[in-house]
Design a protein around this nucleic acid. Structure first.
Lengths: 121, 121
DNA sequence: ATGGAAATGATAATCATTTCCATTTTGTGA
DNA sequence: TCACAAAATGGAAATGATTATCATTTCCAT
């Protein structure tokens, strides 16, 4: 684990919730860290590969990142305010497993997100 | 409803499933239609506004479009060869609906994909 | 201390999408 | 049919996120 990765993890811990690469870069810069945008992207990518952070998309397609919790979960995201709730996905886990078996797939993972408008928006 | 909008609808009907703006533009061009990329984007935007077309996102953030009312389905993707199977997701539809209600969300959609290695890979 | 691998960051390239603007088409009233 | 305003169109340039390049710096084991 290199220095940049740790920095990004620290910021994500501090801010909580989702942030884009550009935002994370700005935050670090504002705090006096001279880290380059390239390095931010690189660190985020390896953290995603290592399943340390989650990658989602904003409505406009911009990538946003957040620390994974230790349990596998899914997200309920508000399209209006961006607020996010972690949810249980028991039904989805089962569904993915059944389908994968049906088609003879192994080593399977899955993604599932729900998005809509929350009560306030 | 103007001419470009109708053209886009026609292509989406013909191709079925998802396509990006760039792909739709190429298809039309290949067929001899001199439609401009700008017009394709404009038409897709108004079709989305009018809820005639759905807008989703690829993994890489690129916008993809499909006619509303196409049966909603999900994908089983092989990480090895990239082969893709369209699958039914009844369990997922139900799950998304229940969760959304539980948290008071409205106007909800969802994404769900399964990925793994197929028999050959 | 030293050599090689990994990490870094500035810059340039890429690619989807938007904006701008000049031109063409369309619809409508006289 | 004609003239003219409004809408539609499309090429070019702008934008903004992300990725590739590459020279330089930092690490680390020897």
């Amino acid at each position: 684990m290199n220095k940049s990765n740790l920095k990004l993890i620290a910021v994500l811990e501090r801010t909580g919730g989702f942030a884009s690469a550009q935002e994370l870069h700005q935050i670090l810069r504002r705090e006096g860290d001279g880290i380059g945008l390239t390095t931010v992207y690189r660190a985020l990518q390896t953290l995603v590969d290592d399943k340390i952070v989650d990658l989602l998309r904003r409505e406009d397609g911009e990538a946003i990142y957040r620390l994974c919790g230790d349990t596998h979960h899914h997200h309920l995201v508000c399209k209006g305010c961006g607020n996010t709730v972690e949810i249980e996905g028991g039904a989805v886990e089962k569904w993915a497993k059944v389908i994968a078996e049906e088609y003879g797939f192994r080593d399977v993972g899955h993604t599932a997100e729900i998005f809509g408008l929350c009560e306030k928006c």
